[in-house]
Computed example of a mutant assay.
Amino acid sequence: MNKMLTGAVMAAASVAVAGEVAATEWNVSVWGKRRAFTEHVEKLAELVSEKTGGEFTMNISYGGLSKNKENLDGISIGAFEMAQFCAGYHRDKNPTITVLELPFLGVNTLAEEVAVSHAVYAHPAVQKDLARWNAKLLMTSPMPQYNIVGTGEPRDELAEFKDMRVRATGGIGKAFSAVGAVPTSVTATEAYNAMESGVVDTVAFAQHAHLAFGTINRAEWWTANLNPGTVNCPVVVNTDAYDALSDSERDALDSSVSEAIDHYLANYGALLDKWDGVLAEKNVTKVELAESELDAFRTVAADPIREAWIADMTAQGIPAQELYDLVMKTLSDVRAGN
């Protein structure tokens, strides 16, 4: 009898251990704190857990696994299974995606940003580019056009941008450089300290980041209509970890992306609706540049920077013109569909 009981206990233990082994747990590396920019990641984790009955879970770490500029490196070595990063943090590591950071692309809404990003992500050259880091592109983190907050006298003329020290990355940084400003690419988490210490005069962010990283609290003015472009920040997964998922787990992950993006868009839309109230509450002056100033900015920054990007990327063997044309066609198709 004792032998039979012992055997039963051992069998039960084996089943329990097998159950534990079957459960899948992913570590996810993001940064800062939970905010509009990470809501699709949070929603994705919630949906995947629900669809798998808790057998596939995600532990989302805000800075505990890696620095934001090193998330792609962490993915490449399998230090964690999922991560968010921004292309402008390391353009040489993800050159194909930087097409989405060109200034003045003309993307007007978050839905348009999702469409052009996912079209580019699906391009074979882009997938090959990210495969160098053992990364599979999962979804974008759509952001509205960047605008700047600053201290001192408001800058509402292009001439006043000369020698302005601005926190700006990627194509936005190049655009400001084209009009005589001095961009610096400190990370989002470093932006407040850079502004506080006087390393920069102004900071270019989307609205959620001005709130999340506190730059709005030092601001005296904000440009409402500069809209030079935005930063592209994908969410990627480690390819080996993705391939190791069971069919049901993979389906739970893939089928949750659209719903996670929809949740993100709704959440971000609510934030934008409150933005004017935030400015009033913090006594931040809204600055609107004249259309003639904006036209001058586009003339200096849009075409020359795009042409230089296409020439540079083409020289590296990247189908740059094809990628740019894909963005424009997708934008046109989305608007035609609406």
Rank of each mutant, 00 (worst) to 15 (best):
V237W: 10
W222I: 09
E196W: 02
S185C: 06
R167I: 12
A23K: 15
T109F: 09
E157I: 15
H118P: 07
T330P: 14
V114N: 02
A87W: 06
A320T: 08
V334G: 06
D312M: 05
I305M: 05
T285M: 05
V231Q: 04
S177K: 15
C233T: 11
V300Q: 10
E157W: 04
T239R: 15
I305Y: 09
N193T: 14
D240L: 10
D243Q: 13
T140W: 01
D295G: 07
V120E: 02
G337F: 09
P234E: 00
V237C: 11
V186N: 13
P144N: 03
Y89G: 07
T24K: 15
N94P: 03
E42C: 12
N71Y: 05
K282L: 03
V200N: 05
R298L: 00
T38R: 04
D254L: 14
V278I: 08
A87H: 12
G152A: 02
V114H: 05
S246H: 10
G171C: 05
L245S: 05
K162V: 14
E196P: 00
H263E: 00
E50V: 13
L137W: 09
R167V: 12
E307K: 15
L137Y: 08
E293G: 07
D276H: 11
W31P: 01
L253V: 15
V278G: 00
A308E: 12
G198I: 10
V284F: 06
E220M: 10
V9S: 07
T239W: 02
V257Q: 01
M1Q: 12
G337V: 04
A23Q: 11
P144A: 03
W222D: 00
V48K: 03
V237Q: 03
L289D: 04
E220A: 10
M313T: 08
L138A: 06
H210V: 05
E281H: 12
H123R: 11
M195A: 04
T52L: 07
H210G: 01
V107Q: 03
G171R: 14
M4H: 14
T6C: 09
V257M: 04
A175E: 02
G337R: 14
L272I: 10
D312E: 12
G78R: 09
R132Y: 02
S177V: 00
D73A: 12
V99I: 14
N193L: 07
W31V: 02
A36P: 03
L105D: 12
G74T: 13
